[in-house]
Design a protein around this nucleic acid. Structure first.
Lengths: 153, 153
DNA sequence: TATTGTTATACTCTATAACTATA
DNA sequence: TATAGTTATAGAGTATAACAATA
């Protein structure tokens, strides 16, 4: 039977052109690779991408409202709570109730958090360098980041 | 106290440049947007991105081994089972045991699946058109897909 | 009434290990 | 023994609704 013969074809012969222009598909595959590399690079530190992003933002913006940081990073406030709980539990960041509005929590990176971030930065750079090398250099990186920005800005 | 004053700054003043060159971050944000748009576009159909991708691949490649399709799409075979279960339950695709190797399942899109796929294609195009418009045109899309391909090929 | 943070919850996606039936 | 498919399970990521405290 013809169809069962086709069944024995090897993977390299798959006509995959149907997905060639699907932006969403390419995004998923690329993101999977980059996130995987990030996780592996930071495995020993127990730092996940959101943790690193929060520490980076807080190091430059002390005292932001919790919901501001969450929104800036595209994370829902409900899911942001556990992230801050984790960083606070490790004494890398802390919440302080605002003096003027008792509802809001102001976020700060601690001294220990800043010192730790200085350790993380070279690790992050090794990850980023690997990604940029795969892309073909800093220029390709800039181009990619610029295109991606159009999708979510 | 100075730090509590800073706490009252508004989001538009956040120094977010720290994440400006992070490829992984930009990828996550962009993918979130595109997937969200896909889900909303196909909400009435109950079709998720992997379902669509599988139907597209099977329409061009009848009789592929289940594990071949899974690998081509970057999905682990264990997680691929439920996807095929769903498509088979809806009579859009079917498994047939290979005649020559009783271990392998050959995958086929059904006639109903092909007809359904023809209905889905214009819906998918409306989604893709929206994404491409946001990117700035087909040329930007090609550029983006090409860059993303370097990361996972 | 509206907003901030929080809790609870559910669903999807991804990863790993172990089982089965075949080879 | 190795492989294809399957099952079970666990861990993240994301989304929504509802609540308490405060405005």
């Amino acid at each position: 039977m013809l169809k069962d013969e086709i069944c024995e074809t090897v993977g390299s012969e798959i006509d995959f052109s149907v997905m060639a222009d699907a932006v969403g598909y390419a995004l998923r595959r690329a993101q999977l690779y980059v996130y995987q590399d990030f996780i592996e690079t930071f495995a020993a530190e127990g730092i996940r991408p959101p943790d690193f992003a929060v520490l980076m933002v807080l190091s430059r913006n002390p005292g932001l409202k919790q919901s501001e940081v969450a929104e800036a990073l595209g994370i829902q406030r409900a899911n942001f709570v556990a992230i801050i709980d984790g960083l606070e539990g490790r004494k890398l960041a802390e919440r302080r109730k605002s003096e003027t509005d008792r509802r809001v929590q102001c976020l700060f990176i601690t001294k220990a958090g800043l010192a730790y971030l200085d350790e993380l930065k070279p690790i992050w750079k090794s990850h980023e360098d690997r990604v940029v090398a795969r892309l073909g250099g800093p220029q390709a990186r800039d181009q990619l980041v610029q295109l991606l920005g159009r999708l979510y800005d």
